[in-house]
Design a protein around this nucleic acid. Structure first.
Lengths: 223, 223
DNA sequence: GTCTATAGGAGGATAGAC
DNA sequence: GTCTATCCTCCTATAGAC
């Protein structure tokens, strides 16, 4: 048996829901699928979590709280070590993304399913998900954005935020497709090359942030 | 009345569905919502489109076919004009993204709803959507990737595809959030600054593609 | 604490009148 | 072509037994 025979009903439901929500999304997943996969009764969800939305929230919180705590702890350490100047940009980005890549490799931290689920949660516009993202990510985002900002002080706020948006998009897409990069690229990019993927993401994000400030004729497509 | 009184039922259903699918997604939108918004009877969907999935496909096809045709036509013209060398990278990217930004501004080409719907369709993993994307986008993607590739010939296939993936993510995220950039940035980035957004996207994509090839110690977070 | 049984409602699809 | 009426499936949530 792959399933631990002694896992509490509570945990078994969370595990099954994590996988199914990641694969099919919130609306396309029924409580019956979840309880069937978990090997428990339909009513167990209501007993342990109340309703479907609360279950989804718990699935996310179980993983994201330790993950974000790790991010902030590592960032604090890096800031302390760096002294008066902000920590180097690649290091800051590595601290932001590293824990997610680690979670992708570690079933105990959710594995690929959880990472994909995060990616989905960031894009699905259901009100309760937006609230969840706002509550759990706001402190992390503000903290990192503030430090990154110090590295590109010459940029206008507008340029800075557009670049940040592109990077968030790349991040979200990377997390959502990492598990199938081998298939998507016919084997050229490997799913399990975490160090390579992380290094390339960081380098590209740095390239976006450090590109020259735009000039008036840049919009004309000048080479 | 904002609605054209003579719009055929067929078109009214497509318009209502486009908006609702973009706002709430495929599963969260009911046929009853669509027909209510269109001011037609529930059975009209079945009569005109067969079932819900076919309706979704028609909503996309109505807009995406002219859009992709315009992309390929402009690309052909640019390739002809450039002669032996490939057209400049920023110009190629402008041809790829320009038509989408134009559609965002033009209600007759779908406006923000259609652009958001495309973004959603690229991320939702329902089988019929994956088929739709494969069928309608494959030729365009292959054509553009081939030309972009000629600008970064020194890159390994692996580096090239990772960078392309980051750019696709940035593109998808930009299209999905363009309509609310004002809100997300508290007014700093404007939704309707299409030229500015397009220019910034192109510049960032170029920065990602043209960054130096990675070195062995890049993964260590060296400044 | 966990399960059985079921209420109560919504959704997609269709038959047949007009 | 468009509408009315309806079928049947599937879902969430709950009440109450064990």
């Amino acid at each position: 048996m792959a399933d631990c025979k002694d896992a509490a009903t509570h945990e078994r439901i969370l595990d099954a829901a994590e996988r199914l929500f990641a694969d099919h999304g919130f609306n396309a997943t029924s409580l019956r699928q979840i309880t069937a996969k978990a090997g428990v009764n339909v009513a167990a969800v209501n007993y342990h979590f109340g309703d479907k939305e609360s279950l989804y929230v718990e699935v996310i919180l179980r993983r994201i709280r330790p993950l974000n705590a790790a991010r902030l702890a590592r960032l604090d350490a890096a800031v302390t070590a760096a002294g008066d100047v902000p920590p180097p940009l690649p290091e800051v980005l590595a601290i932001l993304m590293g824990p997610v890549f680690e979670a992708h490799q570690d079933p105990a931290r959710g594995g690929p399913s959880f990472v994909r689920l995060i990616s989905r949660t960031l894009t699905e516009p259901l009100p309760f998900m937006r609230d969840l993202v706002a509550t759990e990510f706001h402190a992390v985002i503000a903290r990192f954005a503030q430090i990154v900002r110090r590295h590109v002080g010459q940029l206008s706020p507008e340029d800075f935020l557009w670049r940040l948006s592109f990077i968030v998009g790349a991040m979200q897409h990377t997390l959502g497709t990492l598990h199938q990069m081998s298939v998507l690229t016919r084997g050229i990019c490997r799913d399990n090359d975490y160090d390579g993927a992380l290094a390339r993401f960081i380098a590209s994000a740095v390239a976006v942030l450090r590109q020259p400030a735009p000039t008036a004729n840049a919009a004309a497509g000048v080479r």
